[in-house]
Design a protein around this nucleic acid. Sequence first.
RNA 1: GCCCCCAUCGUCUAGGGGACUAGGACGCAGCCCUUUCAAGGCUAAAACGGGAGUUCGAAUCUCCCUGGGGGCACCA
Length: 499
Amino acid sequence: MSESSQPVRVRFAPSPTGRTHLGSGRTALYNYLLARQTGGQFILRIEDTDRKRYVPGAEDELMQSLRWLGLEWDEGPDVGGPYGPYRQTERKEIYQKYARQLVESGHAYYCFCPEPETDETDEPWQRCQHREDCPDRDLPLDQADARRSAGEEHVIRFKMPYEGSITVTDAIRGDICVENSTLDDTILVKSNGLPVYHLAVVIDDHLMEITHAIRTSEWLPTFPLHGHIYKAFGWDQPVWVHPSIFLKPDGKGKMSKRDSEALSEEGKSTFLSDFAALGYLPEAVVNWMALIGWSYDDKTEFFTLADLIEKFSIEKLNPAPAAINFSKLDHFNGLHIRELDTADLAARIRPFFEQAGYPISDDEKLHQVADVLKIRLGSLAEAPEKGGFFFEEEVHPEPESLVGKKMTAAESLEMAQRIEQIIVSLPDFSEETANHPLRDLAEELGLKAGHVFGFLRNAITAREVSPPIFETMTIIGREKVLERVEKAILKLEKIAEER
RNA sequence: GCCCCCAUCGUCUAGGGGACUAGGACGCAGCCCUUUCAAGGCUAAAACGGGAGUUCGAAUCUCCCUGGGGGCACCA
């Protein structure tokens, strides 16, 4: 509770180049938590300066995903705010003005070198690194301006000092010192006039008065460059925080497109917009991803968003890369499902039943089903599979499943008939009234209670596993129970005859 | 190849010189509960990468090695 008790201004700044990933979700989450914890602002900024990779619709998908997680932003392209515009392509003039300032102060230069052939060098490090070999690096500004106004194509490059070193500071790693000789004259403004990330991020963070910049450790290699740009402008830097990246479940490298595709084939995903359909609660996803690279103490793992807002701290961020673990997500999903109140759960499983072809008309029944399913659901998507029979008009058990273990069909038939009699004869049908008579029946016939209940389970649900049979029968109702038991008896009669 | 980051059970982690016979969680195995399945409870197996230092004392500090990860675009 040191620096973070002052209201922060943080931003989540994705580029709309594809679907939103789990890793982005976590970065957004951490930003959000810090903002809410300190009463500061959470800003959404769209970094869309790469027109080639721009994907229409990505921005909508992104915003929907963040809102699904519950991460509402205070300023952004759709909600506006006093520091807009919040879409970088709409800030082009701003960048050009500051880039020019950098050139005039001698920290950057116009470079007229043609773009190198996109030669098929597989190794990125073999490409032109553009340092001493650039003839334009020390071109007098008036000459450069003349060539520009003559329409000559150019970019603006940062003029990296040949000597010396720079130290930048990451909140979770400490100081990072790099020799300038290992750095490049990186392009700041492309020939189309749009800035690259390195320039835009510095200018925007400064102008938007960002106090804490949280981004993944992929940015560590270019962090020193950003330090140089800040220095060139003479601006103060925000507190930099670089949570480490997520590794694939096997811990070998970060997720690639191929990996994502492989995951979706096993019914998993790292795309935020997939989790809802897979039956995951946003509460669980939030809990899960918060804990990949961050921890609170040595025992607490269950967190709501509100808990996280209260407990999150930069100090407890782990600098090491972390593998994602889907079984842990399943675990958290189960925990959060069980935390839901029944009406809430009912509302959340309803679409899954409907999508599976079970039209739900009886709200009271849905509520009862939700109640009984609550401790059995690892995911909302399992609801139809585990409770679909509650909504089926008829059920079709395998005849053989009605024959008890180590019992003959005739014995099973007799048992079934006696069960039916009991259910019919009861003045009032409930667990209290039916339990003992049914158990007594088992004893009388020299059977185990499991035989009786097993038969009922198969007859009524047409499956081997179900919620406890009395709860199940109560929901289905005595009338329907009897109907299904009678049908089961018919099947048993048939089997018994054939033998 | 060059630069940067990192290093505790299979995985996520607690730990920041003595409280460590290294704790928790997931998963896994067993047991209990039990009409099935779960949920819940209990138990087990499971880790400080290696080597030098510093220190009375190192999982904790330093260095080297090894290993892992990231980056090296007119992408972010």
